[in-house]
Design a binder for these strands. Structure first.
Lengths: 356, 356
DNA sequence: CATCAAATTGGTAGCGCTGCCAAAAAATCC
DNA sequence: GGATTTTTTGGCAGCGCTACCAATTTGATG
């Protein structure tokens, strides 16, 4: 399937075989149909085609049909790159997220992408691995695409990132955190409040010797915020945190199991453990199952996130359900609507399960 | 928080308040620095700036410094839209995936995005909800961005999608399936082989009354392929499938639990159950825990995917581990390297856990 | 120091589209 | 029927960059 069209006039019509293409793919060069070709085929001007295709401006029904027929016949696919360059404002939305392993971010993407697709926006993403330096580099790379908006996790960004985002002129959405000052729009909930309520709940239930199992807090600053206000609330309630186990890696079921094992090895008489999230809590639950530790009578377990999996456990997990999908949806809606700067608190829900 | 920086010289330093901007964002208009401005500021030609920035072609060290200084000073961010339009071939890779809830796809994205970021490619994605019609629409939308490659799940596409992809001239990667004919490049493993080996394993272990719990097979065709070859192998082994429970929704822990409950209500004397994947299997495991059904003596459980969670269970889940992240990585590498058409079989690993 | 090759540099024509404007066609009015 | 309004249309200048080519500078050589 050799590209026969659009060869510059001064090229020989037939390319000598001796030139030797490396492999089949060389034939797959962009055989692009352009708007100008559609216009010619339909016997109308370029701008008319453009107007019809975008359904913008006026044109007669007859013209519309002729253009659509030509589009169909030639298999024309508009070039959004060119379109975006020529017009003001793109329909790209950039996501700069810390991780794809932590289910939180796929959930946010899911919520957002549904809304964006409906509105003919396109989602672009990259993954920072919770590294602020990488975030800066990736944010710069994203801005090069001149997106309509950039979505990031939380408020903790390098000075360079902030400066760049401010200067870019595009909308900036900071998600999943409300404890700080937003650059532009923030959508999420308060992690500090979540930590506080978790602690208050455990205290109210009568637990006094409470421990914590978490993953790397320096990287996941939102987990860090939950933890610190959890500790403050415990201390204020007269039952300060007894022990903690912080694992180096990412949050995972295995780390939760390992973490609880280590914590209990050091501190035997705990009556409750707060986990940095549900993955970790599930690991702790598994550890208890394996070791025959009765839940919650011997040891209570409390998580964070409210994953579906928690509901299906033999004893539903006590945890806090966060509106992850909704965060993505609302954020996307605000972008589409070009809403003014604001902070949207979606709240969270404490799930009074059977493990605490 | 008004953006005070980077106002064009000809603008008044102070904008009179009387003009009455609707909200703060009006200040955030695109105050874009262009390559031409950098060139002027650095006292060199446009093409020189372009060459320095792309580190392509030749230029002196002195020029390089002058250009970089100007870039720094002006806070120039190259416009990739314009760059892509002007050059041949983009550095966009489009992902058209069925779902973000099924961990498989975030895993693939994760593997791919790491490789793509290293090579300064950008990932774009959209979610089809396992709907081939939506896949076609979204694929068209993606092609409008003239990506270097489009990555899709599996081989089942509408005629329109196939035609469009063929005509587009961009690379097409079909992932996570090898049972069919690839359009261009395929990376993954055989779902039929996975179903076959799962069945063979259960037979070898001596299970004879085997059931199945799965989610919607019409939509997830790869799960369908596993199931059908699973059944064939059982039948060939003289122990055809005894019962099945197919749930309408997506795969989830809750559906797995519910599915097993329903299956056992109908068919009491099963000795093993094959689940459409690990989420479902975990749900089944929870059901057994809750009901006091001994695993694997009373009932064996076998999953698919080899999620980390399976390893942390009190009894490690017997399952098949699939190379999801690697699929993404390899696929991305093939795109970056502009590899010839091929099918890459990454295989899978049967995990002989403690539940079967 | 002239001569030639190599390294550097700037000018400029597009890439494919949109947005503006003016021209042409159709519809409406007196 | 002519004047005027309204609708429909085409032409063309960019959007910001890259690729190509020609011009210039630098370095090497005898």
């Amino acid at each position: 399937m050799v590209a026969a069209r659009r060869l510059p006039a001064e090229m020989p019509a037939a390319i000598p075989k001796e030139l030797g293409f490396k492999h089949t793919m060389d034939f797959k060069q962009q055989v692009t149909v352009t708007l100008a070709e559609v216009a010619e085929a339909a016997g109308v001007g370029e701008s008319t085609v453009s107007r019809v295709l975008r359904n913008h401006g006026s044109f007669s029904g007859k013209t519309r049909e002729r253009v659509m027929a030509a589009v169909e016949r030639l298999g024309y696919v508009p070039n959004r790159i060119a379109g975006t360059l020529a017009s003001t404002g793109s329909r790209l939305v950039a996501f700069v997220i810390p991780s794809l392993s932590n289910i939180v971010f796929p959930d946010v993407l899911r919520g957002a992408s549904a809304v964006l697709e409906e509105n003919r926006y396109q989602a672009v993403f990259s993954v920072t691995d919770y590294d602020p330096g990488k975030e800066e580099a990736l944010a710069a790379a994203m801005l090069a695409w001149r997106p309509a908006a950039v979505m990031l996790a939380g408020y903790e960004h390098t000075e360079g990132t902030v400066k760049m985002l401010r200067a870019s002129g595009c909308r900036v959405l900071e998600l999943l955190d409300l404890d700080g000052d937003a650059l532009d729009i923030a959508v999420g909930f308060s992690n500090r409040a979540a930590g506080r309520e978790s602690a208050a709940f455990l205290l109210k239930r009568g637990y006094r010797r409470i421990g914590y199992v978490g993953h790397d807090l320096n990287r996941d600053t939102r987990a860090g915020k939950r933890f610190s206000s959890f500790c403050e609330t415990l201390a204020a309630g007269g039952a300060p945190l007894v022990a903690r186990e912080i694992l180096a890696g990412a949050s995972s079921v295995e780390n939760g199991r390992l973490g609880l094992e280590r914590l209990l090895a050091r501190t035997r008489d705990l009556d409750a453990v707060y986990f940095s999230n549900d993955d970790m809590a599930l690991g702790g639950y598994f550890h208890c199952l394996a070791e025959g530790i009765a839940i919650p009578s011997r040891l209570a377990i409390f998580g964070y996130n409210g994953l579906d999996i928690g509901r299906a456990m033999p004893q539903p997990l006590s945890t806090i359900r966060t509106p992850r999908v909704a965060t993505g949806q609302i954020a996307a809606q605000l972008v589409v609507a070009d809403a003014p700067p604001q902070a949207v608190d979606l709240g969270f829900e404490l799930i009074d399960g059977a493990t605490a």
